[in-house]
Design a protein around this nucleic acid. Structure first.
Length: 472
DNA sequence: TCTGGGGTCCTAGGACCC
DNA sequence: TCTGGGGTCCTAGGACCC
């Protein structure tokens, strides 16, 4: 017997695209310096330590992601290669432009990283998404100068995989777009059988090796794997990956970034540090940087962790990697209070007799300003709670370079005045560059600062460093 | 001589409580 | 002689990402 009501077919789930720039940092540099074209180029990590971006020519020389620079210096020199320090002001600004153009191709966009963006195509049923992807690619190149790859699939994981094919596979590399929805199941199976399992988003080398031990070496084999068994032997994350490979969407598009859980600021030193005084300067500098980021995002921290470490690549030297956690007596975004707390943590963990190579701070227990109860005893604490970590009364040892008087005045002043001082300080540093006005505790000479000897100009964010066009 | 930095999530195990 | 069990919270460690 037929029922009177036939439910309408469920709408087809919306497909995803993943767009990302090729060799992003290198491509940013090439936009402004034609001499970098058609030769090996690498961009180095902080401290000019490792290669974190490589041009195709550099990859062809066998230079690996994350490879120490000193290992490839000669090889690069022999091949007319160029190594550049990373220029984050430039990359962040280029990223902003890139994301704006990509966002013109769907109202649903997730900015996933500095050079990657997901799009979702809800209600694009009648569109030729492959052509849409080609137009995106052409417009990004025209408007920003950056080459991108486009992968399209039924889930985020499949879109990521398609993006990989778009960049690597000869069938797609020319157009730079791979749309899995265009392929028959048999064609798709052919490509997936040729891809290694650790080409899948979320599967690194460790799990790749473990999967291989269990006879799962290719993407096609992982796609056919038993989900429950994967969940038991690995975890729920990998089980979701298997579902996603089968077109069942488990990872939603995150258009608004989830609330941040922590802010980390740390650096390796340009040269080893042995004294508490110098370590203290470095930690103060990282704390000030983390605090500025905290305010920029409208957050307060309830906890600060300080850590330091010796050089793990020198195992013959005594190793020490301590950390200390200091709770704030109430949440704050005030640099002076955080500096005081960080200093307490550092004094606690510091031991003589080690060559420190790195230090940093983590801000935790983050909450939006206003979401947490204010300090009931703020006014009284200047005199009333000296001795407790982070009380205002103990903070006034800290001045500021270039604004010493103001900083000290504000330190003892009302909460409103202290807040205003920090706003002014942040404004100056945003306008004139980080460190223009800084706290005395951060040090004047800063001999521990990282190496950065190969920086390109901040072509798009600094008036003094704009590229100049010369005729003739 | 020379080896980055900033994030997230999951799980296991211990502490603690009733 | 004999010593529970379940729940929650926290942390450390391990995995992943770019």
């Amino acid at each position: 017997m037929a029922l009177g009501f036939v439910p309408p077919p469920a709408p087809a789930p919306a497909p995803f695209a993943l767009v990302d720039a090729n060799n992003f940092y290198v491509s940013c540099e090439r936009v402004f310096d034609f001499r970098l074209h058609a030769r090996p180029v690498v961009v180095l990590s902080n401290n000019d330590g490792c290669c974190v971006a490589r041009s195709e020519e550099a990859k062809a020389l066998g230079i690996r992601m994350g490879q120490p620079f000193f290992e490839v210096r000669d090889l690069l020199a022999q091949n007319r290669g160029v190594a550049l320090s990373s220029n984050y002001s430039l990359y962040a600004d280029m990223s902003r432009r890139l994301m704006a153009v990509i966002g013109q191709f769907s109202p649903e966009q997730e900015i996933y990283s500095i050079d990657e963006s997901f799009l979702r195509f809800t209600g694009f049923g009648h569109w030729d998404l492959t052509a849409h992807g080609r137009e995106l690619r052409a417009r990004v190149l025209r408007w920003t100068g950056l080459p991108v790859g486009v992968g399209i699939g039924a889930t985020k994981t499949l879109a990521k995989l398609a993006n990989r094919l778009a960049k690597k596979h000869p069938d797609f590399r020319e157009v730079g777009v791979c749309n899995l929805l265009d392929l028959s199941p048999a064609q798709q199976a052919g490509y997936f059988a040729a891809l290694a399992v650790d080409d899948v988003w979320g599967i690194g080398s460790r799990w790749g090796a473990r999967l291989q031990q269990r006879g799962i070496a290719t993407v096609a084999e992982l796609q056919r794997a038993d989900v429950d068994q994967i969940q038991r032997q690995f975890n729920v994350v990998l089980a979701k990956t298997v579902l996603e490979l089968n077109g069942i969407s488990c990872l939603p598009l995150e258009e608004a970034p989830p609330p941040r859980q922590q802010i980390i600021a740390s650096r390796s030193f340009g040269q080893p540090v042995t004294t508490l005084a110098m370590l203290s300067e470095a930690v103060a500098s990282h704390t000030a940087r983390a605090a500025a980021k905290l305010r920029q995002e409208g957050l307060q921290a309830g906890l600060i962790q300080v850590f330091a470490g010796t050089n793990p690549f020198k195992p013959e030297a005594p190793q020490y990697h301590p950390g200390a956690t200091v709770p704030l007596s109430w949440p704050t975004a005030n640099t002076t209070r955080l500096l005081k707390a960080a200093r307490v943590g550092l004094r606690h963990l510091f031991r003589e007799g080690y060559e420190y190579k790195r230090a940093g701070v983590v801000l935790l227990d983050l909450a939006p300003v206003g979401a947490v109860t204010g300090d009931l005893f703020a006014a009284a604490s200047v005199v009333g709670t000296v001795g407790t970590i982070g009380t205002i009364g103990a903070v006034c040892e800290v001045g500021a370079v270039g604004a010493v008087g103001a900083a000290n005045a504000a330190c003892a002043a009302s909460p409103e005045r202290r807040e205003r001082l920090l706003t002014v300080l942040d404004g100056i540093n945003t306008r004139w560059g980080r460190g223009t006005v800084r706290f005395l505790a951060e040090g004047l000479v800063q001999p521990w600062q990282m190496k950065r000897q190969r920086m390109s100009p901040r072509y798009t964010t600094c008036w003094a460093e704009l590229p100049v066009a010369v005729s003739g």
